[in-house]
Design a protein around this nucleic acid. Structure first.
Length: 345
DNA sequence: AACACGGGGGT
DNA sequence: ACCCCAGTGTT
């Protein structure tokens, strides 16, 4: 079976232009013993998250937990704190579950179909690990591949209906035996040449084969559905301070930032303003508000401060304010904490 | 099929 | 001030 001209051109381009990334084996290089673990971790971190944001977090992570067995032995609490700031926290909960399943069965699955059963691995990630991690002829279709293929074949049907045609065309050009390198080549092309806006077609190794380029305005593709406006919502977070410590709670398992450490709040959700009572009676000092944008809403969070005599009710813990950086707060609450501390001075 | 789920980087 | 992103799980 011979490769398509597109595969040959892109693999040749990749041989000269591959990005150097901490989880990547250079084209032609030898995979390390922990390769699958590193590919798995990088792929999960890269779900809806940019390379620039992932890179330093990946390095710190593999230093702390060099293998799936190490990660399986960690507490979920440690892992959640280590994930703080990366967002989509279900990924961290699933990462622990998956690590324990992998450790329990004595190693990673060795097929795409088995990988797909691990928590947190959908169609894309299972295919990416199979192709990049151990060379299976899998076809991982992410947003980069969608964009490149939609342009190469001038698929102008709007997403998500276009996905079937995109997947079929991707399969048609994907080279057997080089699935992993080709996947990474598509990522690099999508990130540096075939970008969402202002693609650099004059530098593209596939230009001569690109129907989108031939038609003009390849940047229109893929066609995306209109997105809806984000509602503005409001909420309150409570900064309860005593003897250089602040009262932190653990968020419920369900919903936003599930099981993450946090400041107590008034029960706002991404769909509604909060209205819950303060966890203590007293003279609350308004220390200002912070803005934070989620996927589905823009939140204005008012921060109120109190130095109480009695203990707050309910589950929680006193945390030294000087060590708040180590509490593993999601970015929203880290911002709120910064606001509260600024008001103290 | 539609929605919930965070955050940061690029322009 | 948007737009985008190496998506997955639930309803």
């Amino acid at each position: 079976m011979t490769s398509s001209p597109i595969a040959t051109l892109l693999l040749d381009w990749y041989a000269d232009h591959a990005r150097v990334l901490p989880w990547r084996v250079p084209p032609g290089g030898e995979a390390p013993a922990d390769h699958v673990y590193r590919v798995w971790l990088s792929e999960v971190m890269l779900q809806q998250t940019t390379v620039a944001a992932v890179r330093p977090r990946f390095e710190a992570w593999v230093e702390r937990w060099p293998s799936a067995a190490d990660l399986a032995a960690a507490s979920e609490e440690q892992v959640m704190a280590a994930w703080a700031g990366l967002g989509y926290y279900a990924r961290a909960r699933n990462l622990v579950k998956a690590a324990r399943e992998v450790a329990g069965r004595g190693g990673f699955p060795t097929t795409e179909a088995e990988l797909r059963e691990l928590p947190g691995l959908g169609d894309y990630t299972a295919a990416a690990i199979a192709a990049i991690g151990f060379g299976e002829d899998a076809v991982p279709v992410d947003a980069n591949v969608e964009r490149v293929v939609a342009r190469l074949f001038a698929i102008d049907e709007p997403l998500p209906k276009a996905r079937k045609a995109i997947r079929e065309n991707a399969r048609a050009v994907w080279p057997r035996g080089r699935a992993g390198d080709f996947a990474q080549a598509m990522m690099d092309l999508g990130s540096s040449i075939c970008t969402a806006r202002d693609p650099k077609c004059l530098l593209c190794p596939l230009r001569a084969h690109c129907a989108g380029y031939a038609m003009g305005e390849p940047e229109r593709l893929p066609v995306k559905p209109p997105k809806k406006a984000k509602p503005d919502i409001r909420g309150t977070a409570w900064w309860i301070e005593r003897d250089g410590q602040v009262w932190l709670v653990r968020r419920p398992a369900k919903g936003m930032m599930g099981r993450m450490r946090a400041l107590p709040d008034d029960g706002w959700t991404a769909r509604a303003d909060g209205s819950g009572p303060a966890p203590l009676a007293g003279e609350w000092q308004d220390v200002g508000a912070i803005e934070h944008t989620f996927t589905h809403a823009r939140l204005t969070l008012t921060v109120k401060r109190l130095e109480p005599r009695e203990e707050p009710s309910g589950e929680g813990e006193w945390w030294p304010i000087a060590r708040l950086d180590h509490a593993g707060l999601p970015t929203l609450f880290a911002k709120a904490a910064t606001r509260a501390k600024a008001a103290i001075d």
